[in-house]
Write a protein that binds this DNA or RNA. Structure first.
Lengths: 149, 149
DNA sequence: CTTCCTGCAAAAGTTTTGCATTAAC
DNA sequence: GTTAATGCAAAACTTTTGCAGGAAG
């Protein structure tokens, strides 16, 4: 699986006239292992030796090539994940206490009915519906425990 | 309606030992009229005479009191709206081309089934489900026209 | 050998903070 | 009168950019 992702990432970059360098491979590897979007501090801390300006530039380049996507949050720094082209369509469980973000997949039947509902909404407002973004906000197990204790 | 909102905002602030000053009233008025979340540049530009540092401080204070909420986007500046306590539960239509954001409401039956589905997801992952955030990403009428032309 | 990538340092952008002044209650 | 809000300027913060050196093809 990880081989498939790296192969795809390499192809996507090469198609854009870009190289799949060691540092870019490390970023993809890191995001693939994470189980959810990784924040800039996590990336800079974890990926020992990854330099700030190169990380920003490489994430931007990987995004242009369609390999990664920026995730919107209310945090003060960025979060990045593998694009849905590589990771599949999914949603996020966001802990409002510690900021942790995990991936989650909804039943495909529900996705379909959600998209139909949004099509209707969009039509009514003159919007062309491209995609949606659905996050569950709550407390992760750790933070829920802390609150109880 | 606007009277009701101002009254509620005043109560919420007073409950927190804060004052409902002219500037805070102008912020609430502005966000109430907007039909969607307002960005910091819009607020600073539109509300003539609103000073940058005071706007940031007042939005933070209004958020603490539960009057307004920060909206997450991928823009480089903040967006703010009336809280759901005042404006009711709703979603956003986001134009991926120009950044415009409009409010939208989904059929209540669909909201219920969405919440049930998310309850299941949360339980499976050890999350305590508090609320959700659902945005439709697409092209507003103006940008769709530009693309066609 | 040409093009792209990397790293450092500096700049740009938004947001936050310190402090003296002014307004609200 | 006492406490909180405002405005200005400076600081903090993340992110972007310029430029020289190094690696990739």
């Amino acid at each position: 699986m990880s081989v498939v992702v790296h192969r795809a990432a390499a192809d996507m970059l090469h198609g854009a006239g870009q190289r799949y360098t060691n540092q870019r491979r490390r970023l993809v590897e890191l995001l693939m292992r994470a189980g959810g979007p990784g924040s800039i501090p996590e990336i800079l801390g974890a990926g020992r030796g990854l330099k700030q300006s190169s990380v920003y530039r490489n994430l931007a380049e990987l995004e242009r090539a369609g390999v990664v996507s920026r995730v919107v949050t209310d945090e003060e720094f960025g979060r990045w994940e593998l694009s849905e082209a590589l990771a599949g369509h999914h949603h996020h469980l966001v802990c409002s206490s510690c900021g942790r973000v995990e991936d989650a997949v909804m039943p495909s039947g529900f996705e379909r009915s959600l998209d139909r509902t949004l099509d209707g909404l969009a039509r009514g407002a003159g919007f062309a519906h491209l995609r949606h973004r659905l996050d569950l906000i709550g407390l992760c197990a750790d933070c829920a425990n802390d609150a109880t204790a």
